[in-house]
Nucleic acid binder design. Structure first.
Lengths: 155, 155
DNA sequence: TATCGATTGTTGACATATCTACATTCTAGG
DNA sequence: CCTAGAATGTAGATATGTCAACAATCGATA
């Protein structure tokens, strides 16, 4: 690593401190590796992608259908991305869409419901192994609260 | 930091507890929103994508070139993804590659070095606003350590 | 109730990521 | 030296995500 850079932490604090930059890249790196690991486990066992699983699990939590805009908000996706992904999942018979006014309700098909029962324990095991095990229960709670502070504020 | 007490897991332990599932989705949601926000800020100001910036910053930290495999490891990417992305960045004149045995060294071009000076403060401001500000300095350190536990273990 | 702006969703072109298969170089053991 | 397996990269096909433009509905208000 290079060390001799003009790093003086001006009072203006234009650039990031070491701690700050490290937090950012630690976050990205953890996210990339976590996704790769869980995704590998799940795909090997079920053939489903990570986004597929995210949609299925969130959609399954609400009986009778979720509006797309709410689903997008839960996932942190934008509506374009969700629309494209739902089209793909729909063509594979996993979900169905019902137009309700200007909105669209998403629900699982029979096939989708069947698939999710298979996926859930596999996904749970992967999450537990790769994300939960490194932490104590109280750390799990603390970490969740910290992460929610990132997504909640409209900042 | 603290000792790794391990989970008390119910005998079944097939599925995730509420805390556990919430941690997982809080993580994914925070990641999606953080990436979207920072990426929007940076793209609006520079036209560079989030992966572009990640590669530029990591490559700039090492003088004289980084081996692709190491860059991939720092980023948490797999080598295929990095190879494709570097090809695109190379064709835009941002980086250059030199073959060294079976490996490849990546370094910034003049244009890449010029670009990164423009990007860095903008990126720093975006990271500060969206990731740092919600936390105290000690939380920043704690959070970084927690995230590193996710990526470090080969688990 | 007419109409304008905001909300919700889709589409197509393009950018990025993944998967499978392959080529080259490195390394350790005969 | 050889040579088999590991490590490093690349290529093309496919899957996924983003951007800009558009269409339909909602909702407030004049």
């Amino acid at each position: 690593m290079s060390t001799i850079d003009s790093r003086v932490e001006p009072a203006t604090a234009e650039l990031l401190s070491d701690d700050e930059r490290q937090l950012y890249f630690a976050f990205k790196r953890a996210q990339e590796m976590l996704r790769a690991r869980i995704s590998d486990d799940v795909r090997a066992a079920t053939g489903l992608s990570d986004p597929d699983v995210a949609v299925l699990i969130h959609a399954a939590e609400v009986d009778g259908g979720v509006r797309q805009s709410e689903l997008a908000s839960l996932l942190g996706w934008d509506r374009t991305r969700l629309s494209h992904h739902l089209s793909r999942m729909q063509s594979r018979g996993l979900i169905e869409r019902t137009k309700v006014g200007s909105a669209v309700e998403v629900s699982l098909t029979e096939a989708g419901l069947a698939v999710i029962d298979v996926v859930r324990p596999i996904h749970a095991a992967a999450v537990r192994r790769h994300l939960i095990e490194p932490f104590t229960p109280s750390q799990v709670v603390y970490l969740r609260e910290a992460l929610e502070r990132i997504s909640e504020p409209g900042a």
